[in-house]
């Protein structure tokens, strides 16, 4: 006769990520590094917006970027051309960064002298929302070309973000999307701040950089 019993496990499978994220956060705090987790779909303009922020801020602050991508080389080269420290993280088929990827990247590069760390997440509006990386602020970027119902289709990531950037508003008319609706939807989903931008035409970029400055540790 087999002995059958129910065993209490009570294991939250995210606890390991939370533990590492909290260690990352302590490290960042100790070294005075402000960290931005930049999320958004493929082609929403994450890289471009980070590049713009680097150009605006690099004379006053020391900046590094963790470039997370399926193949990280391409974005890494773009960031490196701005003269900042780049930590490429190729995720392979993993569709998001987790705290361990970030911890691992930090083991290989000394960032103690850095003021601002941008973490460019993998292009995806679903998976990154579950994984705390140890950041100070979460930013989600969407472009009008994703369709103006994209925000309502992915409410959780907007709820969990500190800033929504609705990018490429200069082409909204041509793709039949309402940038105003997308900004309003982000606020409805519970994101506290949402701004329209155009990386190409410059609209809204001042506010994007202001958000970063306001978040910095004093």
């Amino acid at each position: 006769m087999h002995k059958v019993s129910d065993v209490k496990v009570e294991q939250d499978i995210m606890r390991i990520n939370r533990k590492i994220a909290s260690e990352n956060r302590s490290f960042f705090e100790k070294n005075g590094i402000t960290v931005f987790n930049i999320m958004g779909a493929i082609g929403s303009g994450k890289t471009c917006l980070i590049e713009h922020a680097i150009e605006e801020l690099k004379d006053s602050y020391s900046i590094a970027v963790i470039a997370g991508d399926v193949i990280a080389q391409y974005d890494s080269d773009r960031f490196a051309s701005h003269g900042v420290k780049v930590l490429p993280v190729s995720t392979g088929k993993e569709c998001h960064l987790d705290a361990h990827f970030v911890e691992h990247a930090l083991e290989h590069t000394d960032v103690k002298d850095i003021d601002i760390l941008f973490i460019e997440n993998v292009g995806n509006l679903i998976c990154p929302s579950d994984f705390d990386l140890g950041e100070d602020a979460r930013v989600v970027i969407v472009s009008v070309s994703e369709g103006d119902d994209i925000v309502l289709k992915h409410p959780v990531i907007f709820k969990l973000s500190d800033l929504t950037v609705v990018n490429k508003v200069d082409i909204a008319e041509h793709v039949g999307a309402s940038a105003e609706k997308m900004v309003a939807d982000a606020i409805t989903c519970g994101c506290t701040r949402a701004i329209p931008t155009s990386c190409r035409k410059g609209e809204g970029l001042e506010e994007w950089v202001s958000f970063i400055r306001e978040t910095l540790r004093t």
Partner: peptide, 9 residues
């Protein structure tokens, strides 16, 4: 995302 219990023999 929690594993509550497992039943074992």
């Amino acid at each position: 995302m929690v594993i509550k219990t497992i039943r074992i023999e």
